[in-house]
């Protein structure tokens, strides 16, 4: 099933076209990487997908229904979660609480039950906390449950962001440069993690510069340059494509 489709998605900032009529189809269970030189519009593309930027034109379809220009929290509730290029954790909360917050849209206790801490609220609290523990274990942060977000190491922070995104129980996970700034060992761990996520039945769309990650796990690669999609295909095809080489290395 096509889980995500963008039809001629365009985003302009005044005179600057950051995303130019990008067509993309992602099938369920795929791992698709978006690559391209800096400033190619990759993060802007993500921001349009998740509703942070209103699209200038074009359509975004998630599981067949139009989610163009819907508010970010609605998009997440429908099943699309993301991480950020610059890690945006909740600094004054522990790792556990960060992941617990992610479950907001899948839990129900409202303000009245919260104020009075009814048995329902308490049960939901336990469930939320347990589930958060499991997610932390899943990403390898089981020993850091009570460390505050800002006290974690950089690689751990990135993994925490992934755990938090997973807490929203998404079907499509958008990862923005998950391996940025990591050493080779951590990169290997990230590759494993993304594979595990896909094995759970989720679809992963990621922006990455790390070619090892990109070629290692992607089913398909999409190349953006100046907002346009200039190539798409298997890692082998894309790496041999002359247009891609030109975009990265220049002519001649």
């Amino acid at each position: 099933m096509t889980i995500l489709e963008t039809r001629r998605l365009t985003k302009c900032f005044g005179g600057l076209t950051a995303v130019d009529a990008v067509n993309l189809q992602v099938e369920q269970g795929e791992i698709v990487s978006i690559i391209g030189p800096n400033g190619a519009g990759k993060t802007t593309y993500f921001n349009c997908l998740t509703g942070i930027y209103p699209a200038t034109s074009g359509a975004i379809l998630f599981r067949g229904s139009d989610i163009t220009n819907r508010k970010p929290f609605v998009v997440t509730r429908l099943g699309v979660a993301r991480t950020f290029q610059n890690v945006r954790l909740f600094a004054e909360m522990s790792a556990l609480e960060n992941v617990m917050v992610g479950q907001y849209c899948r839990t129900r206790a409202g303000v009245l039950r919260g104020l009075l801490r009814t048995p329902f609220a308490r049960r939901e609290f336990s469930q939320t906390a347990t589930h958060a523990m499991e997610l932390l274990e899943f990403v390898g942060l089981g020993h850091q449950t009570h460390t505050w977000g800002r006290n974690l190491a950089y690689g751990e922070q990135r993994r925490l962001e992934i755990a938090r995104a997973l807490a929203t129980q998404p079907e499509l996970l958008l990862l923005d440069e998950p391996a940025a700034g990591m050493n080779p060992q951590e990169v290997g761990a990230i590759i494993e993690l993304i594979r595990k996520i896909r094995d759970q039945g989720k679809t992963v769309l990621l922006i990455e510069h790390h070619m090892r990650v990109v070629t290692g796990i992607s089913d398909r690669i999409v190349v953006l340059d100046y907002g346009e999609k200039i190539a798409e295909g298997t890692p082998k095809d894309v790496c041999a494509d002359p247009r891609v080489i030109e975009a990265y290395l220049g002519k001649g």
Partner: peptide
């Protein structure tokens, strides 16, 4: 409570909180 955590998330980083479905 769930609401209180969401409030603190909003305080810390509203955009990220929205991206988490809040």
């Amino acid at each position: 409570s769930r609401i209180g955590r969401a409030w603190i998330a909003i305080r810390e980083d509203e955009t990220a909180a929205a991206a988490m479905g809040i």
